[in-house]
Design a protein around this nucleic acid. Structure first.
Lengths: 186, 186
DNA sequence: GTGCACATGTAATGTGTTACATGATTAT
DNA sequence: ATAATCATGTAACACATTACATGTGCAC
């Protein structure tokens, strides 16, 4: 039941925007900022099959009778069940685990919120995101203290700091984004 | 010949610091900032076997004659071949592809540089890192212009901006790190 | 009519995840 | 003595990557 891979949600998010073929989706992954999702046919077509088997997407019948020529262009659209699971995914709370391990999934979720969930959900997302991030960053900073008290400023410590600073940038971004979204909804 | 997975290099970097057992390595992944490398026995022990088969690590013989009881603690150390491949990996140039797709591998490499490659290699790393990142960020900003000219400040645009701002944070970090390392070496 | 972009697919391989199994050592 | 922790391992499964296969339609 659960689609755990980001790729599957990346696909259904795009299909929500408009029905497309596997080839169209691949081109999006190759040419746009969604580079991180694999552009290889060996991942996309099987993923579409899984989604179809799960009933989340369906192939548009070109003409109702012809028994699908497998070599012909085949556009998929999101089913109602697919839309429901997209919304469920978008509405999931932001956990500590997410901010530690699933940073890119979180951003994918946020990117897809517009038009699919109410503005208030996006604001809640940002609040939770900032909250969990701040908590985690506190722990990291404590660890950093211990590390740097023992060692001089070696590359290990610097690399660790890089992680912290990236998270700080995310917090700053979240605050900015919330201000923007909050203002607009008034 | 090539170890492509980050896990394998995470392991040999730790083994370079000191010989350890698979269990010790797991604990490091669980309790320290190296959380991102899988802590599950199903990944670590097979990875150690691969590294051993490749001749990069070797099990320390507790006593020379006893034919290894498989249930006994087994500490691994890095072989000369393993050290050589660690250094080769650390000295690899930073490519455009790396900054786009392999951010965490890059930070792992940088973290392991101390004591394994000369300071000048770390400085070169930072230069290349900053260079490739700046070039890529330029492209992303151009894409952002096009996006935001068409759409209002939707969540998609904001998510995109988040990526850019994280990269900007990395550039700022690289500059700071270079200043620090450069000063110290004088 | 030859080459290229379109469009979909399969097979082999490697690896990470989850869950389970095994036994030793230490603590209560 | 029994539970927890130490320590290593295997098996089933899912998934991504790579490389290959297949055929269409258009341009030149």
């Amino acid at each position: 039941m659960n689609a755990k891979s980001n790729l599957e949600f990346a696909l259904i998010g795009l299909l929500k925007q408009k029905p497309q073929s596997g080839y169209d989706l691949r081109k999006t992954f190759i040419t746009t900022a969604m580079r991180h999702y694999s552009d290889s046919p060996g991942s996309i077509y099987p993923a579409l099959r899984r989604l179809e088997a799960r009933g989340w997407i369906a192939a548009e019948a070109e003409s109702p009778h012809e028994a699908a020529d497998p070599r012909k262009r085949r556009a998929y659209r999101l089913t109602p069940a697919g839309e429901a699971s997209l919304v469920r995914w978008l509405e999931m709370p932001v956990t500590r685990n997410d901010v530690i391990f699933e940073g890119s999934e979180l951003m994918l979720r946020f990117a897809y919120m517009d038009g699919n969930v109410p503005r208030s959900s996006a604001l809640r997302f940002l609040d939770q995101f900032e909250r969990e991030l701040s908590l985690y960053i506190g722990e990291l900073r404590a660890q950093l203290e211990q590390m740097s008290s023992k060692l001089p400023a070696h590359t290990g410590v610097l690399a660790f700091q890089s992680g912290i600073e990236q998270m700080e940038a995310q917090i700053a971004w979240a605050q900015k984004a919330r201000a923007l979204l909050g203002k607009e909804s008034s």
